[in-house]
Amino acid sequence: MKLTLTVNGTEYARTIEPRLLLIHFLRDELGLTGSHWGCDTSNCGACVVWLDETPVKSCTVLAAMTDGRRVTTVEGLARNGVLDPVQEGFSACHGLQCGFCTPGMMMTARWLLDRNPNPTAAEVREAISGQICRCTGYENIVRSVLWAAGNDGNDGNEGNDGNDGSDDDGRD
């Protein structure tokens, strides 16, 4: 079937199998590998992206269902090269270790802060409760989101130096 949607502000048209899961569409068709896959049963949240205005588990949504809609992924979190305070917060507060859960966590965090700019730690915990992190024990994720709440609205260039030092081992 034909699918037209907007991802991170760019419109895409593709022909897909109706059974294709959104997470695989994003990763395999569009090469947006920032969103991850971690389970078969919709429990882990590594795959969280926004569908229109709300975070969803993209392993539990068919790409077909996003026809005519907007999808936002971690790759769309920074605006014009400026990191979102949530991204800076995760670095400033050691909110990630292996980084596998991080994109999903950040997408949920941004959504939370848009609706509730000054959440309590308990509210942050509740918001991310459908997402598993195996590395941080969650504490520093909570601190990261609270850091971002305190720095939202700033242009925010504390924390990470913004330099992209990735070593692209093996990337095609």
Binding site: L32, T33, G34, S35, T73, V74, E75, L77, A78, L83, Q87, E88, F90, S91, L96, G99, F100, T102, P103, M106, N160, D161, G162, N163, D164, G165, S166, D168, D169, G170, R171
Partner: peptide, 9 residues
């Protein structure tokens, strides 16, 4: 830097 941008490999 790479992970918060979704650029881990």
């Amino acid at each position: 830097a790479r992970f918060i941008r979704g650029q881990g490999t």
